[in-house]
Protein backbone atom coordinates (compact mmCIF):
# COMPACT_ATOMS: atom_id res chain seq x y z
CA UNK A 1 0.00 0.00 0.00
CA UNK A 2 1.41 3.36 -0.91
CA UNK A 3 0.87 6.21 1.46
CA UNK A 4 -0.74 9.45 0.26
CA UNK A 5 1.93 12.09 -0.31
CA UNK A 6 2.31 14.44 2.64
CA UNK A 7 0.62 17.82 2.41
CA UNK A 8 2.99 20.79 2.45
CA UNK A 9 2.10 23.07 5.36
CA UNK A 10 3.60 26.50 6.01
CA UNK A 11 3.06 28.99 8.81
CA UNK A 12 3.91 32.67 8.96
CA UNK A 13 4.18 35.09 11.85
CA UNK A 14 3.29 38.72 11.13
CA UNK A 15 2.22 41.27 13.78
CA UNK A 16 1.03 38.90 16.49
CA UNK A 17 2.23 37.63 19.86
CA UNK A 18 2.95 34.04 18.68
CA UNK A 19 -0.02 32.85 20.75
CA UNK A 20 -1.64 31.33 17.66
CA UNK A 21 1.49 29.28 16.99
CA UNK A 22 1.42 28.19 20.66
CA UNK A 23 -2.18 27.12 20.20
CA UNK A 24 -1.15 25.12 17.13
CA UNK A 25 1.43 23.28 19.24
CA UNK A 26 -1.30 22.74 21.82
CA UNK A 27 -3.18 20.23 19.66
CA UNK A 28 -1.48 17.50 21.71
CA UNK A 29 -1.49 14.00 20.24
CA UNK A 30 -2.86 15.29 16.95
CA UNK A 31 0.72 16.48 16.37
CA UNK A 32 1.71 12.83 15.89
CA UNK A 33 -0.99 12.27 13.28
CA UNK A 34 -0.06 15.55 11.63
CA UNK A 35 3.58 14.51 11.50
CA UNK A 36 2.45 11.55 9.38
CA UNK A 37 0.28 13.60 7.08
CA UNK A 38 2.04 16.96 6.63
CA UNK A 39 5.52 18.38 6.22
CA UNK A 40 6.03 21.82 7.70
CA UNK A 41 8.03 23.61 5.03
CA UNK A 42 8.23 27.16 6.40
CA UNK A 43 7.58 29.22 9.52
CA UNK A 44 8.93 29.93 13.02
CA UNK A 45 8.74 26.21 13.83
CA UNK A 46 11.29 25.20 11.17
CA UNK A 47 14.61 26.45 9.78
CA UNK A 48 13.79 27.34 6.17
CA UNK A 49 15.05 30.79 5.20
CA UNK A 50 12.95 31.30 2.10
CA UNK A 51 9.29 30.67 1.48
CA UNK A 52 9.10 27.63 -0.81
CA UNK A 53 6.95 27.02 -3.87
CA UNK A 54 3.78 24.89 -4.05
CA UNK A 55 2.57 24.99 -0.49
CA UNK A 56 -0.78 23.29 0.09
CA UNK A 57 -1.96 25.04 3.23
CA UNK A 58 -0.56 28.22 4.79
CA UNK A 59 -1.53 29.46 8.26
CA UNK A 60 -0.84 33.15 8.81
CA UNK A 61 -0.78 34.62 12.30
CA UNK A 62 -0.79 38.38 12.91
CA UNK A 63 -1.96 41.64 11.40
CA UNK A 64 -0.24 43.27 8.44
CA UNK A 65 1.67 46.11 10.12
CA UNK A 66 4.94 46.69 8.27
CA UNK A 67 6.42 46.54 4.79
CA UNK A 68 7.94 43.17 5.70
CA UNK A 69 4.56 41.81 6.80
CA UNK A 70 3.05 42.95 3.53
CA UNK A 71 5.79 41.33 1.42
CA UNK A 72 5.64 38.06 3.33
CA UNK A 73 1.84 37.93 3.06
CA UNK A 74 2.09 38.41 -0.69
CA UNK A 75 4.80 35.77 -1.03
CA UNK A 76 2.71 33.29 0.96
CA UNK A 77 -0.29 33.96 -1.27
CA UNK A 78 1.66 33.58 -4.49
CA UNK A 79 2.99 30.21 -3.45
CA UNK A 80 0.10 28.64 -1.54
CA UNK A 81 -3.08 26.93 -2.63
CA UNK A 82 -5.08 27.58 0.54
CA UNK A 83 -4.41 30.52 2.88
CA UNK A 84 -5.86 30.66 6.39
CA UNK A 85 -6.02 33.84 8.48
CA UNK A 86 -5.26 32.33 11.87
CA UNK A 87 -6.47 34.26 14.91
CA UNK A 88 -7.96 37.66 15.59
CA UNK A 89 -4.88 39.70 14.64
CA UNK A 90 -4.89 38.24 11.13
CA UNK A 91 -8.69 38.30 10.94
CA UNK A 92 -9.56 41.70 12.48
CA UNK A 93 -6.11 43.27 13.22
CA UNK A 94 -7.12 43.04 16.91
CA UNK A 95 -4.65 44.42 19.47
CA UNK A 96 -2.10 45.69 16.87
CA UNK A 97 -4.89 47.91 15.49
CA UNK A 98 -5.00 49.87 18.73
CA UNK A 99 -2.21 52.03 17.31
CA UNK A 100 -4.19 52.90 14.22
CA UNK A 101 -5.64 56.20 15.39
CA UNK A 102 -2.09 57.54 15.93
CA UNK A 103 0.18 58.38 12.96
CA UNK A 104 3.28 56.10 12.88
CA UNK A 105 5.80 58.96 13.27
CA UNK A 106 4.04 60.27 16.36
CA UNK A 107 3.68 56.75 17.70
CA UNK A 108 7.40 55.99 17.29
CA UNK A 109 8.37 59.31 18.87
CA UNK A 110 6.12 58.66 21.80
CA UNK A 111 7.57 55.20 22.41
CA UNK A 112 11.26 55.71 21.55
CA UNK A 113 11.76 59.36 22.57
CA UNK A 114 9.13 60.46 25.09
CA UNK A 115 8.99 56.97 26.60
CA UNK A 116 12.75 56.24 26.68
CA UNK A 117 14.77 56.36 29.91
CA UNK A 118 18.10 56.13 28.09
CA UNK A 119 19.27 56.75 24.51
CA UNK A 120 16.14 58.36 23.11
CA UNK A 121 15.88 58.01 19.32
CA UNK A 122 13.66 56.33 16.79
CA UNK A 123 15.41 53.25 15.32
CA UNK A 124 15.71 53.66 11.55
CA UNK A 125 18.11 50.94 10.44
CA UNK A 126 17.43 47.21 10.12
CA UNK A 127 13.80 47.59 11.13
CA UNK A 128 10.92 47.29 8.68
CA UNK A 129 8.97 50.44 7.96
CA UNK A 130 5.57 50.56 9.64
CA UNK A 131 2.48 50.82 7.48
CA UNK A 132 0.09 53.67 8.25
CA UNK A 133 -2.18 51.18 10.03
CA UNK A 134 -2.15 47.55 11.15
CA UNK A 135 -4.76 45.89 8.95
CA UNK A 136 -6.42 42.50 8.60
CA UNK A 137 -4.87 40.03 6.19
CA UNK A 138 -7.84 39.94 3.81
CA UNK A 139 -7.34 43.64 3.06
CA UNK A 140 -4.07 42.83 1.28
CA UNK A 141 -4.40 39.26 -0.02
CA UNK A 142 -7.18 36.81 -0.77
CA UNK A 143 -7.93 34.69 2.29
CA UNK A 144 -9.59 31.28 1.88
CA UNK A 145 -10.61 30.73 5.50
CA UNK A 146 -10.85 32.94 8.58
CA UNK A 147 -10.31 31.30 11.95
CA UNK A 148 -11.02 33.91 14.64
CA UNK A 149 -10.00 33.67 18.30
CA UNK A 150 -7.32 35.18 20.51
CA UNK A 151 -5.87 32.66 20.16
CA UNK A 152 -8.13 30.21 18.31
CA UNK A 153 -8.50 27.18 20.57
CA UNK A 154 -6.39 24.11 19.89
CA UNK A 155 -9.69 22.34 19.18
CA UNK A 156 -10.52 24.88 16.47
CA UNK A 157 -7.11 24.49 14.83
CA UNK A 158 -7.28 20.71 15.08
CA UNK A 159 -10.73 20.73 13.50
CA UNK A 160 -9.63 23.00 10.65
CA UNK A 161 -6.52 20.98 9.81
CA UNK A 162 -8.21 17.58 10.03
CA UNK A 163 -11.16 18.67 7.90
CA UNK A 164 -8.89 20.20 5.26
CA UNK A 165 -6.63 17.16 5.13
CA UNK A 166 -9.70 14.98 4.71
CA UNK A 167 -10.82 17.17 1.84
CA UNK A 168 -13.78 18.79 3.60
CA UNK A 169 -14.62 22.42 4.25
CA UNK A 170 -14.30 23.14 8.00
CA UNK A 171 -17.43 24.41 9.77
CA UNK A 172 -16.27 26.83 12.43
CA UNK A 173 -19.56 27.76 14.06
CA UNK A 174 -19.12 25.58 17.12
CA UNK A 175 -15.39 26.04 17.65
CA UNK A 176 -14.37 29.61 16.82
CA UNK A 177 -15.34 33.10 17.96
CA UNK A 178 -13.78 36.55 18.20
CA UNK A 179 -11.76 37.18 21.36
Amino acid sequence: MTKAPKARLATAWLDGCSGCHMSLLDVDELLLTLADRVTIVFGPLVDAQHFPESVDVALIEGAVSSQDDLRLAQTVRENSKFVIALGDCAVTSNVPSMRNSIAPTRLLERVYIAGADTQPGVPLENVPKLLRAAIPLHEVIKVDLHVPGCPPSAAAIAHVLTELLDGRKPDLSAVAKFG
Binding site: D88, N94, V95, M98, F178, G179
Partner: peptide, 8 residues
Protein backbone atom coordinates in the same frame (compact mmCIF):
# COMPACT_ATOMS: atom_id res chain seq x y z
CA UNK B 1 -15.92 51.36 16.23
CA UNK B 2 -12.94 49.58 17.82
CA UNK B 3 -13.99 46.17 19.08
CA UNK B 4 -10.91 44.45 20.39
CA UNK B 5 -12.61 41.48 22.04
CA UNK B 6 -9.43 39.90 23.36
CA UNK B 7 -8.76 42.78 25.76
CA UNK B 8 -12.36 43.82 26.41
Amino acid sequence: KNHVCAVC
